[in-house]
Design a protein around this nucleic acid. Sequence first.
DNA 1: GATGTTAAGAGGTCTTTACCAGTTATTTTA
DNA 2: TAAAATAACTGGTAAAGACCTCTTAACATC
Lengths: 248, 248
Amino acid sequence: MSSMIDPANIIPKYFQLANILREKIENGEFPAQDAIPSERQLEEQYNLSRPTIRQAIDLLERQGYLYRVHGRGTFVSPPKLQKGMLELTSFSEDMRNRGLTPGGRILEFGYLKPSAKIAKQLGLNDKDAQVLRIKRLRTGNGEPIGLQDSYLALDNGQVITREEIEQKGSIYAILQQKFGIYPTEADETLEVTLATPEEAELMQIPVNSPLLLNERTLWSQDRKAIEFVSILYRGDRYKYFVRLTRKW
Amino acid sequence: MSSMIDPANIIPKYFQLANILREKIENGEFPAQDAIPSERQLEEQYNLSRPTIRQAIDLLERQGYLYRVHGRGTFVSPPKLQKGMLELTSFSEDMRNRGLTPGGRILEFGYLKPSAKIAKQLGLNDKDAQVLRIKRLRTGNGEPIGLQDSYLALDNGQVITREEIEQKGSIYAILQQKFGIYPTEADETLEVTLATPEEAELMQIPVNSPLLLNERTLWSQDRKAIEFVSILYRGDRYKYFVRLTRKW
DNA sequence: GATGTTAAGAGGTCTTTACCAGTTATTTTA
DNA sequence: TAAAATAACTGGTAAAGACCTCTTAACATC
């Protein structure tokens, strides 16, 4: 049975319990809006101390599966709110989430000295610092969706080749697999612009068509800026989606 | 001194400690990337138990002020990543964050039967359900910035008057103060549209000017949908900003 | 000098125990 | 009968102590 705590398991008990409870929520054993057993009941049921129980519930509360009401109990969040919490997604992931096959073509690839704006975004103080610039036309199901212009701050010795990108498609996948770099936090802005002749031709739309400009600065798990990227989306083909939370 | 724990204070000790540490981070006493005192040292320093110390550090870690490294210590996050974690903001807050004075004019105000789309967004099954519709022209420093069309799902007895809105300006402020409803989670979409003649006149821009359309469904802390709102922003005056995080 | 070992100190997990503070239903009282 | 007090829940905060794993640097060994 996976519905019991194994003291010999390397996985922490609070984590095991959280997994058990999450499963009961997901398979409907704990229906939405219903109270789960009280902390004292769980204490007896799983033979764990209350701090450990609370640690498990804390985790599920932060993940949006449960919410607590002082004096009343702990309740199951409705499914609307529980899954797919805010996530950073790459273009490839984004397209797949929308049921489209991601694709594209590399337009520019090479190292260069970053502009002042980009150096500032990436926190590069070294005057001789170089960044890897990759400009790509991105497609969904073969049709042009956006123009992506990416500037990567790589450490010495971290090399990405054009072939790797053409093969994997996603820069983020390469950063993870090759260098253990995980995108963890990002600042994004969105605004409206109009297509220049060059942009219009690449995306096969009329000049001055409205576009959605998405600029993003990305940080890794060790708090270093790793990428500044601008993506121009066709206004008629793309809708940006985000889930927000606010802590009180 | 606010740098000591007051056992008599109603504010929990772990929260008092978190405030003290946050202050030391913000005024530079704990510089970025430096380690803060170890949990055992803080234990002695503030005469608190380690679980309480850890609770305070947990809080600051979630808020992005600190990050922990097993075996090495707890470190101060660089300022880039520490402030203004992702937050839901009202139009009024948003404007003030940008250094502009929020204002506006109510164009429509009243109860009506919601359209199918809006009833679905708000999760209203009752056929007789009514929603409060408030359409407003929003301004920053007196200039038109956006057109906001809001649909509120209020319970029986929860009444908001036109005067309250004109006085307070922010619906969210009224929801909080009058009914104890706190916006906690939201789904947002952003896309490009073109100004209709009506919209153009209200915002004093040419017809077919590009606009940024922001649609949002909002939930409260007890997981009930409370508002569906669409905001049309002038493309030349507004840039959307969001901070994203991804958990691995 | 290079290498492997070890000990100190960091955060991570867990138990036991205690009391506080909201919520709700029951019981008591007017 | 209706209002008020109370008891029995709920989650929230806090302490003290134990033992674990991971990191680092000093030490011992080759």
